[in-house]
Amino acid sequence: MATPRPIRSMDPYAEQFWAYTQKKEFRLQKCCDCGKFRWPPGPTCDKCLSDEFEWAAMGGQGKVLSWTTFRRGYFPEYPAPHTVIVLELDEGPLFVAYPVDMEVADLREGMTLSLRWTDGQDKYGEYNLPVFGPVSS
């Protein structure tokens, strides 16, 4: 059984994002007309209002912008302490995740981390959750 996690916000576009994760593919929408990436998934390009898009594969690397450590538990699935990070992906979008295979004390502003996968499930089914860890040498 996959790891239970707090429920995802689901809509027809989020469904497609999460469907790719079942194949461990990390894809974000890219506007076919102006090239802007968007996240979270949605129907329209916020830059040019085009509804033509592709699911572009991300390189899976980003730089750390900020982080916070929950010292009070909010979700039974994530007892405190739990640390969340925000990365700036190489392609431009910012992405929230949590760090794996590293100590929180080793987080640094601007450090490059790379994509890992961990399993997850909620009432919408099983999926894989993109998380980030040190770049393997």
Binding site: P40, E77, L129, V131
Partner: peptide, 28 residues
């Protein structure tokens, strides 16, 4: 858990990763 699962807003969209609450967004 009482503020998850709705539409798209930063304070609960990232619940699957354990990010929740306005306070955490201001902590970031």
């Amino acid at each position: 858990s009482r503020v998850t699962g709705g539409g798209i807003t930063s304070y609960f969209y990232y619940a699957p990763w354990g990010l929740t609450s306005q306070g955490a967004l201001y902590a970031l």
